[in-house]
């Protein structure tokens, strides 16, 4: 009569009484069904593994706290927990979509690191220094407006108030500053690009 299978209800009861082997039997008995169910929804082994683990952590916590009641069957109850966790997973991913690189498409081929590497950073610094030297050749009024606008990030209204000229005059000086700067760059055959 050893072939008679112990029911889930008996194993759950034994586990709640402290028999750890009963949990092992329950997991072994239902692991494939529960895991397959989760995998059929998420189609990702790692995610399925995580959800399977979280499902049984909930099961263990509930049983150990004695909160489980025998109203329903064990397996449907576990499946319901797994189902809810799958829904949680999709809700989370909807807010923060996950890109995996398992297929042919690699997300990193279209995403680039916006930070400059050391070489481009050095070039950028050199260009900025060159530009600072070049603008010194501009007439004083144009240099003043350009410095306030570009380096001090002031608005044209603030520039006009500070320099005592109208906004239109400030705009005009800025325009001529840029035109003259281009002329200086062309004259010296300078290349100011990365």
């Amino acid at each position: 009569m050893n072939n008679v299978e112990i029911t889930d209800a008996v194993l759950v009861h034994e586990y709640m009484q402290g028999n750890e082997i009963a949990l092992s039997k329950l997991i072994n008995r239902h692991q494939h069904r529960i895991y397959s169910f989760i995998f059929s929804k998420v189609f990702d082994r790692d995610v399925a593994e995580d959800i399977f683990q979280d499902t049984f952590i909930k099961v263990i916590n509930t049983l150990k706290r004695g909160k489980y009641n025998e109203e329903g069957k064990f397996l449907p109850w576990v499946m319901r927990i797994a189902h809810n966790l799958v829904i949680d997973h999709f809700r989370r991913n909807k807010r923060m979509p996950k890109f995996d690189n398992s297929g042919d498409f690699n997300i990193f081929s279209v995403l680039s690191d916006s930070d400059l590497n050391i070489e481009t950073q050095i070039i950028k610094d050199q260009i900025e220094n060159d530009v600072k030297e070049l603008i010194k050749e501009l007439p004083e009024d144009q240099l003043e407006v350009l410095t306030m606008r570009i380096y001090k990030d002031m608005s044209f209204k603030e520039i006009s108030e500070r320099t005592g000229v109208s906004i239109n005059t400030a705009l005009g000086r800025m325009r001529y500053a840029l035109i003259n700067l281009r002329k200086i760059i062309e004259k010296h055959n300078l290349v100011l690009t990365n």
């Binding site: 072994n28 895991y35 995998f39």
Partner: peptide, 8 residues
């Protein structure tokens, strides 16, 4: 299909 032994 089943979970890894380590998970169990």
């Amino acid at each position: 299909l089943g979970p890894r032994k380590e998970t169990v």
